[in-house]
Amino acid sequence: MTTTAFPRVLPLRIRPALALAAVASALIATAMALVWAPTDAVQGDVQRIMYVHVPSAWTAYLAFLVVFVASVGWLWSRRPVFDAVAVASAEIGVLFTGLALVSGSLWAKPTWGVWWTWEPRLLTTAVMFVMYVGYLLLRSLSHDVARRATRAAVVGIVAVVNVPIVHLSVTWMNALHQLPTVLRPGGPALDDRMLATLLLGVAAFTLVYAWLLATRAALERARQDRWLALG
């Protein structure tokens, strides 16, 4: 087996450009969120937490969808690059889910009066977080590269069901968490400048995710090559 049999995840020259785009858009999005966007009429300035909370949650959804696609890719083709993308995306997805939980908690305390409450959106998000932490723990149980990738892929495919459950949980019963404001029937229901700021935030977080994914997956590919070389 030669180490050149598998393509690199992304050519090295793309990653610096991705890093630059991610950092630049993050700086602009943060400035817009803290300065340019209007103050919420009801909640006041604390609503500005939305501009990191919602993009964190969106990026977590995206990351777990990528885990699903990469897991199918591994089971279908047995190409190691798919397993590298799956583990990278799961790890980053756990990070973004954690950030959505923490930023949500910091928003909940001044608006709801509590740091945490067991209402549907929070409960389902906590379950999603724990399931993907479990995915990462499962991977550490075996050092057989192919067996580990296959076991993980099965979990990666099953666990994606969390994404629509979390997203729709707010519509299933009377909840404390607010309903979808952007992805709703009838179009987005918020101020134009708020919407523009939120969308740029989502774009920035997506670029950060792409950069982290490329970097983390490349790391995993290098590990795979070393394991293959060791036989």
Partner: peptide, 30 residues
């Protein structure tokens, strides 16, 4: 001083600080 400024500052610092820490951790991992 904005009301709830501490909550806003904490949310932004934790989110961007964690992402920056993750980037740095990737540099140290092999």
């Amino acid at each position: 001083m904005t009301e709830n400024a501490a909550f806003i500052a904490a949310a932004y610092l934790i989110v961007w600080g964690s992402l920056a820490a993750y980037v740095l951790s990737l540099r140290g991992r092999r």
